[in-house]
Design a protein around this nucleic acid. Structure first.
Lengths: 166, 166
DNA sequence: CTGATAAAAATACTCAGTTGCATTTACGGC
DNA sequence: GCCGTAAATGCAACTGAGTATTTTTATCAG
C-alpha cells in the first residue's frame, strides 16, 4: 500500500496507461506558499490537494482530487473532504454545486481583488463533463426580481459544449 | 377510478396538529386533466403527486411530496421519485438542483407558450428554505461567454430572503 | 527536544437517490 | 362487462456523496 510518495519509481512499464508525471507536482511550491499565508498549519494533504486544484483549469470533485493524488500522495477520502472545505473557509477556493449532486472545487482567481465574491458564473460541459469557472457576473445583469425579494448571492450557470467539445 | 380519495372523512378530532384539509385535494381534477393529455396511464400516485405540486407556490422535494400525501394518499417513496421524474419527462414539471444536494420540483408555467424552456431563474430563501420559480431569464442578459463556448441552457439562481422572510 | 494541540486516519454512520424483481393495476380489445 | 398484458407500483437491497466520532499522528511554539 504505497509507502508515501514516489515509492515505486520510474521502472513502471505498465502496458496500459503508463503513469505520466502528474502535473500537480509542479504546483507544490506555489501551494505551500499560499498555505503559509493562512494562520493554519502546513500539512502534506493540504499542499497536495491545493497543488492539484492549481494544476487544473476546471473544477474538480473530491473524487477527482483523491484519484489524481492516489499514486504519489494517497490521502484518506475524508481528509480530502475536510481539506477542500478548509480551502473554501480560508478563501482560497470556492465550491460549485453540480447537476449530479456533487460539489466541485476551484481555486479563486487571485486577480479578482478583495473577493468573497458572491457572484459566480460557471459553464458545465455536457460533452466532457467538466465545469469551468467564468468571469464574475456583472453587477447589473438585466434581470429584475419580484418586489420584496432580497438577493444576497447570484449563481449563473450555463450548460452546453465547451471550447474543446464544440 | 378515484374512489380512493377522501377516504377517512371529517371526523378527525386529533388533539395536536389536527390535520387541516390538505390543499392539494382541490387540485385533483386539474391534475387528472393534465395527465390525461399525456400518452401515459392515469394512476393514483401520478394524480396525487401532481395535485400536490399544483397546490404549492414553491418547489417541493420528493420528501415534501411524500410527507404531504402521507395521510390521505400514502405512496411508496420510490414511486414518488419515479412519478416526479416522469412529470419532468413529459414536460409537466421541471427540476431544480438545490444547494443541499436535493432535487426540488415545480410544475411548469402553462402560460409560457411552447416551452421546453431551457432558461430558468430561481430564488432560494435562506430564511424559510423554500425555493421559488421566477420568470424566465430574458433572452439576452448582458453576459458574454468566452469564445468557443456553446450554451444550450442557462440557470440563474439567487440566494437571499424571500418576500415573506425579508 | 518536547509537549500541547491541530489535523489526519480509521471507522461507522446518514441520507438522497437508484436498481432489480415480484405483484398489482390501468386500459384496449374482445 | 371481462380479460390479457404492458405498464406502473411496492418492497428490499444497494450506491455513492458527504458527515460525525474517536483515535492516532504530526506541526510547530517554547
Amino acid at each position: 500500500m504505497k509507502t508515501a510518495l514516489a515509492s515505486n519509481g520510474a521502472k513502471n512499464t505498465k502496458p496500459t496507461k503508463a503513469s505520466p508525471i502528474p502535473a500537480y507536482l509542479a504546483r507544490i511550491p506555489e501551494a505551500e506558499a499560499a498555505i503559509r499565508l493562512t494562520a493554519d498549519r502546513l500539512t502534506q494533504p493540504r499542499v497536495a490537494v491545493l497543488a492539484c486544484l492549481l494544476s487544473l483549469d476546471h473544477a474538480a470533485s473530491h473524487f477527482d482530487v483523491a484519484q489524481a493524488l492516489a499514486r504519489h500522495h494517497p490521502i484518506d477520502r475524508v481528509t480530502v473532504y475536510r481539506v477542500l472545505e478548509w480551502l473554501v473557509d480560508v478563501g482560497i477556493a470556492h465550491r460549485i454545486a453540480g447537476d449530479d449532486r456533487v460539489w466541485r472545487f476551484m481555486v479563486n482567481d487571485p486577480t479578482a481583488s478583495v473577493q468573497p465574491h458572491h457572484q459566480h458564473a460557471h459553464f458545465a460541459c455536457s460533452g466532457c463533463g467538466q465545469t469551468f469557472c467564468l468571469d464574475d457576473v456583472p453587477n447589473k445583469l438585466n434581470f429584475k426580481l419580484p418586489k420584496g425579494f432580497k438577493p444576497a448571492e447570484v449563481d449563473l450557470k450555463f450548460r452546453g459544449l465547451c471550447l474543446h467539445c464544440a
